[in-house]
């Protein structure tokens, strides 16, 4: 099996589909043609840039450069989590809770995977670290964003119930227990669903890419499994951390519900 190289012309043909979609949006007055085009241009620029950066990065394993790249990825993910919140925490917290919990989960899981499971030498070998970290952050970001959004939204709506539990002499963890559980569950659902249907409905993106690029299917499947397990572990860990930090931030030292720490959208 050989890798068929894509020429710019091939990509342009595929891009015609996006143009068609934008045209359809205009024709049907969906009003999203601008956003479709901007997203398409953004993805083109971002992916080409990343390809370039990775090309440079792969030629040298300088830890500082790799660290810098990881941090850029993390801060972009943190920003994205913040953007997806309807009711954000005031101040640094809306960014901090998301970024910190993703840092904690993604970096630990990736480090474990690289040192114990795949045993890459050195463990920060960019060809392994960067793609793994990217997939990890992408998925953890989804889980964390959904879980945090669900937490703050429900806390806002259930203010009366939460305060009734506080008045009944409950502590803050009892007062927000159900909401916390629910938020965590909704954060985990996407990755659990993806695991459950993997291979049946669709071939996961990474595996598809590897097969298209000429890799043996069974190797691709094994890598996909590894990724899947890592992703679910990382998403779980990240969501737990985010929901714990987020719910703690909703109460102060005297265990009062502090919805004033959320911004009004």
């Amino acid at each position: 099996m050989t890798l068929i190289h894509l020429t710019p012309w091939d990509l342009a043909l595929a891009a015609a589909l996006v143009l068609l979609l934008a045209g359809m949006s205009w024709w049907l007055r969906l009003g999203v043609e601008r956003r479709i085009l901007i997203a398409a241009v953004r993805s083109t620029i971002q992916l080409m840039l990343v390809g370039l950066v990775l090309k440079i990065l792969f030629n040298q394993t300088h830890p500082a450069l790799i660290g810098l790249m990881s941090m850029v990825m993390l801060s972009a993910a943190g920003f994205e989590v913040m953007q997806r919140q309807k009711r954000r925490y005031r101040g640094i917290w809306s960014y901090g809770i998301g970024a910190f919990s993703m840092f904690l989960s993604s970096f630990t899981v990736i480090f474990l995977a690289l040192t114990v499971v795949i045993r890459v030498d050195p463990w920060y070998e960019p060809q392994y670290l960067i793609p793994l970290l990217g997939m990890m952050l992408g998925n953890t970001m989804n889980g964390v964003a959904i879980a945090l959004d669900s937490l703050t939204r429900q806390a806002w709506e259930a203010r009366g119930q939460i305060e009734a539990r506080l008045l009944a002499g409950g502590n803050w963890e009892q007062a927000i227990e159900e909401i916390r559980r629910d938020a965590l569950r909704s954060g985990l659902i996407p990755i659990v669903n993806a695991m459950g249907t993997a291979g049946l409905v669709s071939l996961p993106g990474m595996m598809t890419g590897q097969i298209l690029a000429g890799g043996p299917p069974l190797e691709a499947a094994k890598y996909q499994l590894l990724i899947m397990f890592l992703l679910s572990g990382g998403t779980g860990l990240g969501s737990v951390a985010a929901v714990w930090l987020g719910s703690k931030r909703l109460f102060d030292r005297r265990e009062r519900l502090r919805l004033d720490r959320l911004r009004i959208p």
Binding site: A158, G160, Q161, E163, A164, R165, L166, L167, A168, G169, G170, N171, E178, R254, E255, R256
Partner: peptide
């Protein structure tokens, strides 16, 4: 004293009552 203990000893009845479980009995100590 911890806030939960204080709220148990000095009981507030809000103007609007809120309930968090299914049945009346589940809300009692």
């Amino acid at each position: 004293m911890p806030a939960p203990l204080w709220r148990r000893r000095v009981g507030l009845l809000p103007a609007e009552s809120f309930w968090w479980a299914e049945t009346v009995g589940e809300h009692l100590p």
